[in-house]
Simulated scan of single mutants.
Amino acid sequence: MASNTFGRQLQLTTYGESHGIAIGGIIDGVPAGIQLDLEAIQLELDRRKPGQSAIVTQRKESDIVQFKSGIFEGKTTGMPIGFEIQNADQKSKDYGHIKEVFRPSHADFTYSKKYGERDYRGGGRSSARETANWVVAGALAKQIIPEISIAAYTFSVGELSITDRHKVDMNQIEKNPVRCPNAELAQEMETYIKQIRKEGDTIGGQVKCIINNVPIGLGDPIFEKLHANLAKAMMTINAVKGFEYGSGFSGTTLKGSQHNDEILTNETTKTNYSGGIQGGISNGMPIEFTVAFKPVATLMKAQSSIDESNKQVTVEGKGRHDPCVVPRAIPIVEAMAALVLADAFLINKTNR
């Protein structure tokens, strides 16, 4: 399985399973001399960690990151940065019932068929537990590009969605457990997620991300287009089913005369249907994209499936699971965006 490294110039390689001793990784390619705010990195992990509210999984993990190398007296040395996060609250017995059974729409089936082996405890490496590693790396990547502002928020949960952009208050994002920038809608979403949990079901939603102060010139033509790398980063996140940037699918209803972003003398554009990227290269305008998350596959309801002997069985989820992944996905979306942008930034510096 040689697919554990992300990035070109700035590379993240990770290890670990959901119910193993620890998870962790190595971040390579970080320039020397960057003064790191380690508290800011921990804060990002705290935003992602389980058990933080009544609408997420109640697994209790402190998620304290320990840096093992590549940092001396608070500054990066230019050497590989190793880090580790201990797993503390595994309840592997909760997964004994799926030891030989595949959960519908989960990675259980495909992992087993591809590798002939699988760690059924919490999904092993297919678990979203792995994304804690990405948040560490992404939080560090943000400090490589401090001028760039990356902010994601919950745009929708099920059919509850922000319809008026003028009612978006970015200061509200961290003031409610749903991380929605509309306080009234956030309360509706929270109530709805709690209802879904009581029903033993799950629900999906959308995350919107806005990136400001992006310099012109990030990204490369053909196979390293910035929007393509952002799409790959977002589609890597567990439960993601879609990605669109700029006008996205709605742009297909417009004429070219309506959709083109006219360029002004100050090198900005009159509109931003391009979503801050043209020809795969950032144009200096805000980068805007939306990520769609499916309902979590593990349900507390009986569903039909098969076991490893191809026998028809009934499977029902047990243990602690998110009824909606969207609120905890916010820092993950930001982290993956930061990794892509920091990578593109470092590549630009190297090529000049």
Rank of each mutant, 00 (worst) to 15 (best):
M1C: 12
M1W: 00
S3V: 14
F6N: 01
R8C: 10
Q11R: 14
T14I: 12
G16N: 12
G16Q: 09
I21P: 01
I26R: 00
I26C: 08
G29I: 07
I34Y: 04
L38F: 08
Q42W: 02
E44S: 15
D46G: 05
K49H: 07
G51M: 10
S62D: 13
S69N: 04
S69W: 00
P80T: 10
F83C: 06
E84N: 07
Q90D: 12
D94T: 06
Y95V: 03
I98P: 03
K99H: 06
F109H: 12
Y111D: 13
K114L: 14
Y120A: 08
G122Y: 01
R125M: 11
R125G: 13
S126N: 04
A132H: 01
V135H: 01
A137M: 03
A139E: 07
L140F: 01
Q143P: 01
S149D: 04
A151N: 07
A152L: 04
T154H: 01
F155G: 00
V157E: 03
E159H: 08
I162M: 05
I162F: 04
I162G: 08
R165G: 05
H166K: 14
V168T: 11
M170R: 10
E174D: 15
K175Q: 15
C180F: 03
P181L: 08
E184G: 02
L185F: 06
L185C: 11
Q187A: 14
M189S: 09
E190L: 12
T191K: 12
T191L: 13
Y192F: 15
R197W: 02
E199W: 00
E199V: 03
G200I: 13
V207I: 15
K208G: 05
K208V: 14
I210M: 11
I210D: 08
N213V: 08
D220P: 00
I222N: 06
E224S: 15
L226N: 05
H227W: 01
A228L: 06
N229S: 10
A231D: 06
T236G: 11
N238M: 10
A239G: 00
F243A: 12
G246F: 05
S247Y: 02
G248Q: 10
F249E: 11
T253F: 09
L254Q: 14
G256M: 11
G256P: 09
S257A: 14
H259L: 15
N260D: 10
L264N: 13
N266R: 04
T268R: 14
I277G: 12
I277H: 07
G280D: 09
I281M: 09
I281D: 06
N283K: 09
N283L: 12
N283G: 13
G284A: 13
F289G: 09
F289H: 04
F293G: 08
F293P: 05
P295M: 08
M300H: 07
S305M: 06
I306V: 15
Q312H: 05
E316F: 02
G317C: 05
C324G: 06
I330N: 07
I330T: 07
V333L: 11
M336K: 10
A338P: 02
A338D: 07
L339D: 02
L341T: 11
F345P: 00
F345Q: 09
L346P: 00
I347P: 00
N348P: 00
T350A: 14
